[in-house]
């Protein structure tokens, strides 16, 4: 999911990354709406709200909305900054660092909400800011490593693209195109996963409240852990096949040094 970059990614890699991150984004968005009465995984609406607050002259709200939009932007900036600057040292590390930061944000929100939240406006705004930054990180990372194919925190573009794709499928030439079919599968799975995450969060919130953020973190740990497991598996296979190869070479050498050919050479020498 996270190891491969840009065009080296398969459709399967993108679907796995897309569904898991979209599920967590759906959960984050619904839980923020239920807890803080504001969305946290999309900023399109906030641009309209920003304009409306400026027109009304509500400068406090203007500043807050501006800060939230900026934090979403900054999340995207930080994620891609990490990807492009640490990619050469270790691709997996560079790609998993933004997800790790996102997990930290989610854990911070969950922990603070669970033990200290007094429902003051300042706390609400800070917690929402952390969630918007985390969603910016997630969207920035998925877009960056998938060559802008996977965006999971909002569904405006996904819905538009699906509409376009389904209209294309009215023609046989596009219907049989495997790239377009793959794209439709990817977008469809992102959309369904986002909605599923939102429904699960909506139900779970009434039972576990702020603890839901630990569940979201767990999903993100799966995103990181899946690749760590894969890397270990690849390393294990690589090491075992290298060992096998070395063992075979050593046996071969040993046979050559002390094995069968020696008496023949002896015979040849005596014959001469």
């Amino acid at each position: 999911m996270l190891r491969k970059f840009s065009n080296s990614r398969t459709l399967g890699d993108n679907i796995k990354l897309g569904t898991l991150t979209a599920f967590s984004a759906g959960m984050v968005n619904v839980v923020s709406l239920l807890l803080f009465l504001s969305f946290s995984s999309n900023v399109t609406g906030y641009y309209a709200i920003l304009a409306a607050e400026i027109v009304k002259g509500n400068w406090y709200q203007t500043a807050i909305v501006f800060a939230w939009i900026f934090l979403f932007f900054f999340g995207g900036f930080v994620a891609n900054f990490m990807v492009i600057h640490f990619n050469k040292q270790n691709k997996y590390f560079a790609h998993s660092l933004p997800v790790s930061l996102e997990i930290l944000c989610m854990l911070a929100v969950g922990f603070y909400g669970d033990f200290f939240y007094q429902e003051t406006l300042f706390e609400t705004e800070i917690l929402l800011a952390l969630m918007l930054f985390a969603m910016g990180l997630q969207n920035g990372l998925t877009a960056s490593i998938s060559n802008f194919a996977v965006k999971t925190t909002h569904l405006t573009g996904t819905t538009t693209d699906l509409g376009v794709l389904f209209s294309m499928f009215t023609k046989e030439e596009f219907r049989s195109n495997p790239v377009l079919k793959g794209r439709a599968w990817l977008l469809g799975s992102i959309m369904l996963s986002y909605v599923a995450g939102a429904i699960v969060a909506g139900i779970a919130y009434f039972h576990i409240g702020f603890k839901l953020f630990y569940v979201i973190s767990l999903f993100l740990v799966v995103v990181i852990g899946y690749d760590a497991y894969k890397i270990r598996l690849v390393r294990y296979h690589w090491n075992s096949s290298r060992k096998k190869y070395h063992r075979a070479r050593t046996n071969d050498k040993h046979q050559r040094l002390v094995g069968a050919p020696a008496p023949d050479l002896e015979e040849e020498r005596t014959a001469c």
């Binding site: 803080f36 009465l37 709200q61 909305v65 939230w68 429902e119 003051t120 609400t124 705004e125």
Partner: peptide, 11 residues
């Protein structure tokens, strides 16, 4: 009472 959202909702 609590004010939520961006300071636009009274709960």
């Amino acid at each position: 009472w609590a004010i939520k959202g961006r300071g636009n909702i009274l709960e």
